[in-house]
Structures are given as structure tokens and as C-alpha cells.
Amino acid sequence: MQLISCPWCGPREEVEFHYGGQAHVAYPDDPAALSDEDWARFVFFRDNPSGPFAERWSHAAGCRRWFNAIRDTRSHELLDVYRMDEAQPARTGTS
């Protein structure tokens, strides 16, 4: 039951947000050029660390904006939130 700080709206109840999985997984520049293995990695494989995790959330019941967060998956604590156009804070070790 986190209080999540939307970078646009400020702290709001977790129920207002939708989860979007790992952040910074770019859509491939040229999918056609990828091998089946590499394409499968993009489609199905995501990091799943126990610890800080850069991930995406959307303020679905608020401003409807997507943003990124660093959250510790052990404690669920949000360590950072940042806008899509901001760089990932240096504190996390995950890709």
C-alpha cells in the first residue's frame, strides 16, 4: 500500500496507478534485423531482480502519464520517481 509520488501530481494512493514492468527496455530500432532469439528476448524476457528495480508506472486514475520509478522489490519501497524524459538516477544497479 505505497504512497506513490507521481512526478506530475505528487503523492497519491497506489490504487490510482497501473504497473508497467521494467523500464528502459527500448523497442528495437529494426526488429526485422533481429534473430528469433533476440526478438524473443525483447518480447518475453524482463529483469526480475530482488532489490532495486527500474520500472514503469502509469498514473491511470490521475493524469494518465507514464513515469519511471526505482523501487526495491523486497520492501516495495519507492526509492526514486522520475519522468520518462529524465535519465535514470545513478543509485540503482539494475539495467
Binding site: 502509469s58 502519464r65 507514464w66 520518462m84
Partner: peptide, 10 residues
């Protein structure tokens, strides 16, 4: 939501 996700994140 699907469209917004692609638009905003990609």
C-alpha cells in the same frame, strides 16, 4: 492504455 503506453514510453 495500450496506445498511451506506446506513445508515452516509446
Amino acid at each position: 492504455e495500450w496506445m498511451e503506453e506506446w506513445l508515452q514510453t516509446e
